[in-house]
Design a binder for these strands. Structure first.
Lengths: 137, 137
DNA sequence: TTTACAAATCGGAACCATTCCGATATAATG
DNA sequence: CATTATATCGGAATGGTTCCGATTTGTAAA
């Protein structure tokens, strides 16, 4: 997912395309890993005119709802990153830099066989640790 | 893990065995699923003499650190349950009642093969939904 | 058993991420 | 350009969690 496609999606769904929204999309397009609302706010200080936390959170939720961002929870803070969207996969997440690496394995097929009569609404598979780059630094 | 074994562990590690700590252990032994600090506080109202949030959180962390409780994050609140400890497994978690069902599948062996050079510190595999009991209710 | 002290508890204040709110500004439409 | 629903803003409120100084309590030693 890139900025342009996200903007098209906003328009198509009847949401307005505003400066704050564009700024947020640009930020998450450039960042590699999971980032928080605070990360973004800190970034705006030096780059865009500053923006209300309310606006940031509202749009994070909107982007998550629209599938533009994917979300996870680390140390009591919500983290977001651009959604790759194409193929279903999971992530290794680096605790130091927030960077991710795709894990193309998902055991849900087997799990569904076990959970007969259960209504499955979602699942999470994440691996945490330190990436090679942060390890050597 | 049962109350008695948890108390032995506390003593062995040099922690004091106090009333609040025993009450908490008893609560989590009887409960089936994931429970929050607030859940426990609500329970104490009618059962034990009430207890400070500080104490509850401090001991929840201690129990998690000692492996007495396992933890997860649901809707911005930390949830805890007694640790089964014996065999490595994951959980289906019911969004309604917090109850769990074991999932004896773990894809970490395969994943470790992919993540060479990565320092793996932990992983999470959880399935969310509604259990048969809550579904029919 | 009594003493002594480190460790644990308590209640309330503080913290921090997140959300709510009323007032203002702005993108989209005709 | 005028209209209007939608979005933004700043500041106040919320809710889960943690911190703090004062007090209490297990536990080990005398």
């Amino acid at each position: 997912m890139d900025v342009q496609r996200a903007i098209q999606l906003l328009q198509h769904e009847g949401y307005k395309v505003t400066k704050p929204r564009e700024n947020m999309l640009q930020y998450f397009e450039l960042e590699d890993g999971y980032r928080t609302a605070k990360d973004f706010m800190a970034f705006t200080e030096g780059n865009y005119e500053s923006m209300s936390f309310d606006t940031v959170y509202r749009n994070l939720h909107l982007y998550h709802y629209l599938g533009i961002l994917e979300a996870t929870e680390l140390d009591g803070e919500k983290h977001f990153r651009m959604n790759c969207m194409s193929d279903h996969h999971h992530h290794f997440i680096c605790k130091d830099c927030g960077g991710t690496k795709k894990i193309p394995i998902c055991p849900m097929d087997e799990i569904e066989k076990i959970l007969t009569n259960y209504e499955i609404e979602g699942h999470k598979l994440e691996v945490y640790g330190v990436c090679p780059l942060c390890k050597s630094a």
